[in-house]
Amino acid sequence: MLPTKRNAKHNSVREVEGSFPIHFHYTAGISTEKFFLGLKEKKILGNTCATCNFTYLPPKIFCEDCFAELGNDTYKEVPQTGILESYTEIYYDFRGDKLETPYFLALIKVDETDTMFYHKLIDTENPKIGMKVSAIWNDDRKGSIHDLNGFKGI
């Protein structure tokens, strides 16, 4: 382990460098794998619990309320438009470093769904809660959440 600058300077044992040296090959899961494959094809897939008349985005393999299993026939493509429900402008990253260019994060109620979708708000000069937004796609899609660049006010 490399000593921290502070340890080197004070020749101190007050701090011990360490880490959790673990990595993961996370399983996408039955519903998220379908969702990612959809994004790759420029499709946003949700799924609907018919009993509760409730559409999940991203999709889930079960309804958290009535606990029914949501099988293959429950998936559907949802519109690529929605309503901006909330947003924030970010000035600092998680390390505490000031961002050169602040950016917007948003909660979007995608049309024909009942959940809130978390993504970036981009290319929107005067964001307003309640405004209509539309999905902006990445040209280089690999089947991940970054296949969407974000949503833009329209």
């Binding site: 996408a28 606990f67 299993e69």
Partner: peptide
């Protein structure tokens, strides 16, 4: 080795079965 299901999905399968 459950290559397809997330931990949450595994929990759902056993919970639903018990109910």
């Amino acid at each position: 080795r459950r290559a397809k299901e997330t931990p949450k999905e595994l929990a759902y399968y056993s919970a639903k079965m018990a109910l």
